[in-house]
């Protein structure tokens, strides 16, 4: 019983999270699928709420009538914006699939197979991402081939 603190044995110094160096603490932490999912869920979540604010702002010309709205939307129809929207969809799809995984882990015994669920959500996510790209850029793809 070397580690028993009650019998006057050796105390083990427990490594706790050092808040002052949270960047390096997070980067040095040995990550497996769960912690990767956790950190990406946060990043995508922050991106999505930021986009929701932007989305309210971008459709606000609806109050000013047809001309103002159509002019604004013209700006968002450029190819650059479409590529940005495509990657926004990647954030949406990761956050949705990982969110479903979290709910399964919490409520449906998913803790036993959460790593398989993680891999499965990547497979589904990449398929959906490519499918969305094919739908969004159908016109451009048709011109290519």
């Amino acid at each position: 019983m070397e580690n028993d603190t009650h019998s006057g044995g050796t105390y083990h110094k427990i490594k706790t999270f050092d808040q002052k160096n949270w960047v390096s603490e997070n980067l040095n932490y040995k990550k497996d699928s769960g912690s990767n999912a956790w950190i990406m869920h946060r990043i995508s979540g922050i991106a999505l709420i930021a986009y929701l604010f932007l989305h309210v702002y971008s459709i606000s010309p609806l109050t000013k009538g047809e001309v103002a709205f159509n002019n604004k939307m013209q700006a968002f129809s450029s190819p650059v914006f479409m590529v940005i929207e495509w990657f926004l969809f990647a954030f949406v799809i990761f956050h949705s699939l990982n969110g479903i995984r979290i709910v399964i882990v919490d409520w449906a015994d998913g803790a036993k197979y959460h790593k398989q669920l993680y891999r499965l959500s990547w497979v589904f996510g990449i398929i959906l991402f490519l499918a969305m790209g094919a739908v969004m850029f159908a016109h451009e793809l048709k011109n290519l081939f």
Partner: peptide, 14 residues
């Protein structure tokens, strides 16, 4: 967003 027009024109929104 199934069609570009459905989200990007005032007439469709209206």
């Amino acid at each position: 967003h199934y069609q570009p027009e459905s989200g990007h024109t005032y007439a469709a929104v209206l």
